[in-house]
Amino acid sequence: MRLRRSRSADHAVIYQVSSLCLSYPDDGVLASIPLLDAALAEQPADAAVVALREFVEYLRTTDPTMLRQNYIETFDLSRKNTLYLTYWTAGDTRRRGAALGEVKQRYRDSGFLVDLRGELPDHLPIVLEFAARVDPAAGADLLGEFRPALELLRLSLTDRESPFSPVLQAVCATLPGAAPADRRAVMAMQGAPPPAESVGLEPFDPRLLPIAEAR
């Protein structure tokens, strides 16, 4: 008898759901919870889907004020958990301006107008939405190139026991190969981010970065 290989979740669905889950939990995001449930219900229960269901349940059952406070404390006040991917790869240096320009060029090359919604082009929710809805191939390439940043963010949120950790677990579960077990393994990857002294300093406000004019 021939066994059928189990079906994995649609990466476009994983990326679109993750994009919303990593966005600031305003009223619009919270109103989308039934849509997130419905999208995930149509997918096979692989590791990424199970992780996202866990986070959506957190969104559903947590007081909105607490949700927003936790989001700000996690992503806006700590460089260790920044969602700006080029910060992990280029640090707070002039090189980051060029890296941001390269991401913007990928968006232009897609032939679509990408709405950054006032964010820098490397903001992870924007990259995920690009991969989900605009250009899956180019989006997958971007996520692959930023894999060290994604894995470091995953490890950081896991160490913190953050409720946002399952979302990064879901995103990283879509990437090929085994996940690195620790920071040393991530740093051994090709194109690894800068040394520890360049990442992980607090406090952090992305609006104050020197390259913010590249927005």
Rank of each mutant, 00 (worst) to 15 (best):
P64E: 06
V171R: 01
D26I: 14
L67Y: 04
E161G: 12
V171M: 09
I72K: 09
H123T: 03
V29D: 09
P44C: 11
L168M: 08
E213L: 11
V17G: 06
T65D: 15
Y71D: 01
Q105R: 09
L67C: 09
Y71W: 03
V134T: 14
S110H: 08
M66N: 11
T158H: 13
M187W: 13
L85S: 06
Y15P: 00
S23E: 01
G191A: 12
L113A: 11
D26G: 15
L59Y: 02
F112N: 04
R108V: 10
P195C: 07
T82L: 00
L208K: 14
M187I: 14
W88L: 03
A173S: 09
Q43T: 09
S78T: 08
W88N: 01
D63G: 13
V13K: 04
R79K: 08
L35S: 13
G111R: 01
E129H: 05
A192E: 09
V114F: 00
R147M: 03
L59E: 05
V171L: 04
G139L: 06
R154D: 13
P44L: 10
V127Y: 01
S19G: 15
E57V: 03
L175N: 05
R96K: 13
R68G: 05
R79S: 04
R53C: 05
Q169D: 12
D205K: 08
S23C: 03
L77Q: 04
A137M: 10
A9F: 07
R160Y: 07
R147S: 02
D27P: 04
P44D: 13
A98C: 11
V49A: 04
V186L: 12
D46E: 05
V103H: 03
D10A: 13
L77T: 06
S8R: 15
I14P: 09
T62H: 13
D10S: 15
D46K: 01
V171H: 05
A214G: 03
H11C: 11
G200S: 07
E129P: 05
D141Q: 11
T62G: 14
L59V: 01
C172E: 01
R53H: 07
L157R: 00
R68I: 08
E161A: 14
G97P: 14
S6L: 15
T86E: 10
G111I: 03
F146N: 05
L150T: 04
R68P: 03
T93I: 07
A41W: 14
G144C: 12
F75K: 02
A47V: 06
I14D: 07
V134P: 00
P25M: 06
L124K: 02
E202S: 14
L116H: 00
W88K: 01
G118P: 07
D37R: 03
E54W: 01
